[in-house]
Amino acid sequence: MSDTATSGVQQVFQLKSASVSMTALELYYFDSDEFEETLRNKINQAPGFFQDTPLIISLEKYEGLDSELDFFNIIGACRRNKIHVVGVRGGNDDQRRLARGAALALMPGNNQRDKPHEAQATDEKPELPAAHTHQAAPEPPPAKIISQPVRSGQQVHAPEGDLIILAPVQAGAEVLAAGNIHVYGPLRGRALAGIHGAESARVFCQSLEAELVSIAGHYKISEDLQDNGWKSAVQIQLRDDLLVVTPLDKA
């Protein structure tokens, strides 16, 4: 108490650069009913994963009419499903004006970010906004490393990047990661990789004894895992929407 009062150097806040991995919704066209129904279906595949997650609307592949692009409607549908739209990526000037009108943040699209392609392809538009020309490549988020056992009732969450656990994950414990999950010990609890939808995420463990394994919302429970690689070192990955368990020594 006293040291904050006496030290005048303490600032209210500090701005730091941060790179956050987020889920992007790639919109092809917009129809209010279809949109909400599809959204609800997606969420039902992975209940809980999308709860209170931020979302950006990617307009790079949007083919519908600009006039159909009702951001207020989109935001409302997402809100009803507990998803928060924070901004849009890409899009033409008209679309971005509509987004700004709905108080959404504007992010550069992939084609605006990819400088070499742009410079090569379009000579008639040589000037890029200064802010975009020297944008550093985003650093991959660091892996979260845990060396204590994850006990029953505990949850370890790596909201971006990989999760590496150098100890057992006990029955009744839950580990979640945006990327891969490595368990250098027995995996007895629940492991959920690719929670923001990364289908390339995998789960690796030294002994598969899990209650549940999930990748990007596709999951298998203990009962379905017993037949293949149970109690041995395996990796689990998603192939054609199916979880495939392979022994690590034959990988």
Binding site: Q148, P149, V150, R151, S152, G153, Q154, Q170, A171, G172, A173
Partner: peptide, 24 residues
């Protein structure tokens, strides 16, 4: 065994040592 595991987890996360960031 399951309950012991649970209490070990609580010990790691809710004890004074855990809250003060000391050795577990």
């Amino acid at each position: 065994v399951r309950d012991s595991d649970r209490i070990l987890g609580i010990l790691q996360s809710k004890s004074r040592r855990a809250e003060m960031g000391q050795d577990p």
